[in-house]
């Protein structure tokens, strides 16, 4: 794990074990850093939700809680931009294949909302071709401050 701040940019690189709750090692510090960098509470909520969903997906659906696999997370936080890259060691998935959770027939399904929430709350999210790594970005614009 490395954790450093230079020129107002905080960076973290860490490998998480594939066990429930290990995401707290990232989210607790990430939330602190967003506050330190002056991000407003609504944006902190948005980033928290998106990163929580993405890391839990990587641990549970990607690595399937396999103790021999890690989830690699890289974070970068500055005053106007946050970037979080999350990669698991699973086979990946096709994000386009996730059914629309807002379709009438899916509206009351008990799961399947994480990816939509990530897309809605972040400025951009991009999966790699294999579908086992995602980069989440949020830019703090004037309209959001």
């Amino acid at each position: 794990m490395s954790d450093q701040t230079s020129l107002g940019v905080w960076q973290l690189s860490i490998d998480l074990p594939s066990e429930r709750g290990s995401n707290r090692q990232v989210t607790d510090e990430l939330l602190t850093q967003l506050g330190t960098h002056g991000w407003p509470p609504a944006d902190v909520f948005a980033v928290h939700l998106a990163v929580e969903e993405a890391i839990v997906n990587a641990i549970v659906h990607g690595n399937k809680l396999d103790a021999s696999k890690k989830v690699h997370v890289e974070c970068e936080v500055s005053a106007d931009r946050v970037r979080v890259a999350i990669a698991d060691e699973g086979p990946g998935f096709d994000p386009a294949s996730v059914p629309d959770c807002t379709a009438d027939e899916r509206l009351e399904a008990p799961s399947g909302r994480g990816v939509m929430l990530m897309r809605s709350f972040m400025t951009s999210i991009e999966y790699n071709a294999a579908g086992n790594a995602v980069v989440l970005e949020k830019v703090r614009g004037p309209a959001e401050s």
Partner: peptide, 17 residues
Amino acid sequence: VDFLSSAALGKLITLDR
């Protein structure tokens, strides 16, 4: 409540049903 994840939404949906 300050925060809830999508897994918690699932429980609320099941409760509603």
